[in-house]
Design a binder for these strands. Structure first.
Ligand SMILES: [Mn+2]
Ligand SMILES: [Mn+2]
Ligand SMILES: [Mn+2]
Ligand SMILES: [Mn+2]
Lengths: 227, 227
DNA sequence: TAAATTTTTTAGACAAAACTAAAAAATACT
DNA sequence: AGTATTTTTTAGTTTTGTCTAAAAAATTTA
C-alpha cells in the first residue's frame, strides 16, 4: 500500500529515515558511525545494517567504504537535520500543547517525525512560537538546518561552588527522566556542586538554592549544565 | 525497520489499516465492499486486494466468502471507527490550530491517522474541545465508536423555498472544495433553492440570504443540507 | 608477528505488499 | 439456455527490509 507520504517532498522510506537519523546521532558523538552501533541503536542486526549502508551509499546519503565506519554526505546531513527538526518540534507540541511529560514524548515523536508535509512543519513551528529547544534541552534546527548551541558541560565536570543551570539531558530514556522528576531536576533548574565524594564519584548538589540532593556519577554524566 | 508503532496498542499494519478504512467507507454507501471498489479507492490492483482480503479474513477483521463482497466484523468495525476518529480529529487540528484550509487537510490526515498512541488521541481530543464534526461536516466517533448523525439530504433534493444549512460535503477532493471556496459555500452556510432548471438539473441557490449562485446537478449531489 | 577475538560483510531465506498475466467464477445479454 | 462480458482469484514475480549462518576483514592480545 505504501505509506501516504508524497515523494515530491520526501525521498526516503521510513526505514531509511531512521537509519539516517541514527547515523547522525552517532556521528555527533564519535566522528564515524560503526555498523554495530547503528544496529544497537535501531534494534536490528549488523547484517541488516550492512545491507542498508550499501543502499544509502548508492543514494549518495553517506560516505561508505567497506569495513570502515560511515559518515553522512551533505545531502544526508540535510535530511538528518530535517528529521531532527521535525522530531523536536513534535516533542515541543506534545509537552506544551497536549500536556505530555518529557518522559512520554520520545516514542510518539519517533513516529510523528516521519509525517511528510513541509507545510505542516512550517505551520507547527509558527504555532509553537518558533521554539529553539525541545523538552530535553536539545536545539531545534531551522528550515536551513541551522541551530544555536549553548556551551555546556556534564554536571560531573562542574567546579565546586560555581552555579549553573541545567541546559539539557543526554539520556532521554523514560526511566532516567522519571528519576529526574522524582529528585526534582528539570531543564532550567539552578544547580551548584557542594561536594564531590571521592569514594564513588557521586555529587552533593544544591538544587534551586533550596534542597540538597545526592546524585551518582552515572547520573551526573547525563546532565548538561551551562550559562 | 518497522514503523515505530507499538503492537500492544495496534494490531494492524499501515496497509491493513488503509484497507479496513476503505472497506468501512464503501460499506457506508453500499452494504458490501466489492474487490474492484476497494482497488479503485486505494489505487491498487484487484489482485492485490484479493490477497489482502484473505489476510484480513484470517485475522477476523472481515467476513469474506470468495467471489462475494466483504463486510467488516465487529472487530473490524471497531478498528475502522478508531481510524476514522483519528483522521477527523487530526483534520480539526490542522484547520483550527494550524490554519489549514479544508481542502489541504485530507492527505496529511491520511498519514497522521496511523500514528499509534491512545494517549495522544485522548489529549488531542481534549485540546480541540471534543469536537463532534470534522472540517467537512463528517461526525467524529468517540472512543467507543459512537457518533451523532444529523439528518441531512443532498442539496439537489431540497424543496424549493425551504431554508437549510450546509451540514457536510460528500466529495472531499481539493478541486471540489476549492470550487466551493470560490462560490462561497461552506459548512454552516444558509441555503435555499430558488429554482430548479429542468434542462440540465442545475439549481439556483440563495446563499446566506445574500447572493444567488447557480450550481450544477453534479455539485448539488455532493452537498448535504439539513436542520 | 602470529593467534585469538571482534567487527563487518556476504549468502541465502523469509514476510509484507505490491504487480502482471492467466484462470475461474459470477453476471449480463441475446 | 448458452454465449459474452465483467469480476475475482490464483500463480508467479518483484521490491523492501528483515533475519541466521558463515566467511572475510580488521583489531587486539600474547
Ligand atoms: Mn522514527
Ligand atoms: Mn528530545
Ligand atoms: Mn491512511
Ligand atoms: Mn474529513
Amino acid at each position: 500500500m505504501k505509506d501516504h507520504r508524497v515523494t515530491t517532498e520526501n525521498q526516503y522510506t521510513l526505514a531509511e529515515e531512521d537509519y539516517i537519523k541514527a547515523i547522525y546521532h552517532i556521528c555527533q558523538q564519535s566522528q564515524e558511525a560503526q555498523t554495530n552501533d547503528i544496529a544497537d541503536r535501531l534494534h536490528t542486526k549488523p547484517a541488516s545494517v550492512s545491507d542498508m549502508l550499501k543502499k544509502l551509499a548508492d543514494k549518495k546519503v553517506l560516505n561508505y567504504i567497506k569495513y570502515r565506519g560511515v559518515t553522512l554526505t551533505e545531502e544526508g546531513m540535510k535530511a538528518a537535520l530535517n528529521l531532527v527538526r521535525k522530531h523536536r518540534l513534535w516533542e515541543v507540541f506534545l509537552v506544551e500543547k497536549l500536556n505530555f511529560s518529557w518522559d512520554e514524548v520520545h516514542e510518539v515523536a519517533e513516529q510523528l517525525e516521519h509525517i511528510d508535509s513541509a507545510l505542516l512543519i512550517e505551520r507547527l513551528d509558527a504555532f509553537l512560537g518558533f521554539p529553539k529547544f525541545d523538552p530535553h534541552g536539545d536545539p531545534i534546527p531551522n528550515e536551513k538546518g541551522e541551530f544555536v548551541v549553548k556551551p555546556h558541560i556534564p554536571l560531573g565536570e562542574m567546579e565546586i561552588g560555581v552555579t549553573g543551570k541545567v541546559l539539557a539531558v543526554q539520556d532521554i530514556s523514560a526511566s532516567f527522566l522519571q528519576y529526574l522528576n522524582k529528585v526534582g531536576i528539570y531543564i532550567g533548574a539552578k544547580v551548584s556542586i557542594l561536594d564531590k565524594i571521592d569514594y564513588d564519584g557521586s555529587l552533593e548538589v544544591k538544587l534551586d538554592e533550596q534542597k540538597t540532593i545526592l546524585v551518582s556519577k552515572e547520573v551526573a554524566k547525563n546532565i548538561f549544565v551551562g550559562e
